[in-house]
C-alpha cells in the first residue's frame, strides 16, 4: 500500500513538492506518517507544530491511513 500526502505552505517548501507519494510499505497510521516524514525531512521537526489531516479533518496519532484517504500535512495555520 502506498500513500499520497498533500503539502501546503512551509511543508511544501521543505519537501519541495505539493504532493509526495510514499511507496509501500507506507505508514499505517498518522503517528507513523509524521515520524517517517520527520526522518526524511528533519526541518519538519523544527516547525511550531505539524498536524495531519485525513479527509479534511484533523487526525490523532492513532488514526489509521488508507490509500483512498485524502491525507495532508498541516503546518501552523495563519488565516485572518
Amino acid at each position: 500500500m502506498s500513500l499520497k500526502v498533500a503539502l501546503f505552505g512551509i511543508t511544501r517548501d521543505i519537501v519541495g513538492t505539493s504532493i509526495i507519494e510514499l511507496p509501500a510499505p507506507a505508514p499505517t497510521n498518522v503517528g507513523e506518517l509524521l515520524a517517517e516524514m520527520r526522518k526524511q525531512y528533519p526541518a519538519l521537526g523544527e516547525l511550531r507544530s505539524c498536524a495531519v489531516a485525513v479527509n479534511n479533518e484533523y487526525a490523532s496519532a492513532d488514526t489509521p491511513l488508507h490509500t483512498v484517504d485524502e491525507i495532508a500535512l498541516i503546518p501552523p495555520v495563519a488565516g485572518g
Partner: peptide
C-alpha cells in the same frame, strides 16, 4: 468566529 478561524482553518500566510 474570527478567533477560532485563526486557530483551525487551513489558510497560510506568507
Amino acid at each position: 468566529i474570527i478567533d477560532t478561524l485563526k486557530q483551525v482553518v487551513t489558510i497560510w500566510k506568507r
